[in-house]
């Protein structure tokens, strides 16, 4: 077992042990914290495909996180009120269907956004992804049918066959399982031919074209997959809070996802997991002491950027190596 595998296993076990211990001690609030970390980690795993592997700094992934959230909110509201959404279809409160809709919706939205944004690079790519996300944000704010600025409540958490999702621990386990699934997908992609081409597009797109692989299609595929994973995380996030609002679509959310990856280590399998765990920990511990906890988050981020460029994973497991 390499050092990185050991660190990854440790992080995965820590994340599942914490809520189990909380359950044993009768402290369900801590389960919710761990669930929050797992969902944010999954969202960041999605972004890590584009940002970590492809070097595509999307500053608009909140669009997909929020769209996933709204997919859950809207489907579940219609199911709750038995109101037809379209053609007599009354939504659904079943999580697997909601995830599917969230993923497909985000993929469909990411396709044109990616196709346009990927004609640019560098800071222009950052700005254009931000602009698209802001468009969706303002659309949600100004659309009264689903709560507009006030957001949309999910009155009863959506269901999963054979699981009582209203209880914190089973819901955590669902989120954790999806996180592991997202990590498995990332791991497979990274090791595959597609992953090799994608990492090539990040390192040297001219070289990639010179061997006969056009970077555009590779990057666009990565962008779409990335958005789909983040979208599923958004649906879970809505179910965790039983609430969706435009804040899930905001640029602060996009920034938060990037911060998670930088904290944890970009392009690393467990970077987003480490980043999300640290983020939620800082948010909870320092947030309990001061309202200005984000100042301290900023300091931590500064330290990481200045002294530990590989993030937490870089500190714990050393420099990334390619086979």
């Amino acid at each position: 077992m390499t050092r990185e595998t050991a660190v990854n296993t440790g992080l995965a076990l820590l994340l599942v042990a914490f809520p189990l211990a909380a359950q044993a001690m009768g402290e369900p609030f801590y389960i919710t914290l761990a669930t929050r970390a797992a969902i944010l980690a999954l969202a960041a795993v999605g972004l890590n495909v584009a940002l970590g592997l492809g070097g595509l700094v999307s500053f608009g992934h909140a669009a997909f996180f929020g769209l996933g959230g709204y997919a859950a909110g809207i489907l579940s509201t219609h199911a709750f009120n038995a109101e037809p959404l379209f053609l007599g279809f009354e939504g659904t409160a079943s999580m697997p269907w909601i995830w599917l809709v969230a993923a497909v919706l985000c993929g469909l939205v990411a396709l044109p956004i990616g196709a346009i944004s990927l004609r640019t690079a560098g800071v222009y790519f950052i700005m254009i992804t931000l602009a698209f996300a802001q468009m969706i944000y303002y659309f949600a704010v100004s659309w009264p049918a689903y709560g507009g600025e006030d957001g949309l409540s999910i009155f009863v958490r959506d269901t999963f066959p054979g699981v009582n999702t209203a209880l914190p621990l089973p819901f955590f386990l669902i989120c954790y399982a999806l996180l592991l699934g997202g990590l498995a997908l990332f791991w497979l992609l990274r090791g595959s031919r597609f992953g090799a081409a994608l990492e090539g597009a990040r390192q040297n797109p001219v070289r990639l074209a010179a061997v006969g692989i056009a970077p555009f299609g590779i990057r666009l595929t990565a962008f779409v997959v990335s958005a789909m994973v983040t979208g599923v995380a958004g649906a879970l996030f809505a179910d965790l809070n039983k609430f969706v609002s435009p804040s899930m679509l905001s640029w602060q959310m996009s920034g938060e996802l990037i911060v998670l990856i930088i904290l944890g280590g970009k392009g690393r399998l467990f970077g987003p997991v480490a980043g999300a765990m640290l983020y939620v920990l800082i948010e909870y511990v320092l947030g309990g002491i001061t309202e200005r906890w984000q100042f301290f988050l900023g300091l931590v981020l500064l330290m990481v950027v200045l002294f530990a460029r590989g993030g937490l994973l870089g500190l714990l497991a050393g420099k990334a190596r390619h086979g």
Binding site: G191, R193, A196, A197, E199, Q203, V211, G212, I213, G323
Partner: peptide
């Protein structure tokens, strides 16, 4: 070249390009 890739993986990427198979997502290279 691809600076982070090993010499072997640099050449493997070219072999892959020649085989025209960059949209394979699962099998480890």
């Amino acid at each position: 070249l691809m600076p982070e890739f090993s010499a072997l993986r640099n050449v493997m990427l070219a072999v892959q390009a020649r085989q025209g198979s960059s949209f394979r997502f699962l099998r480890p290279v």
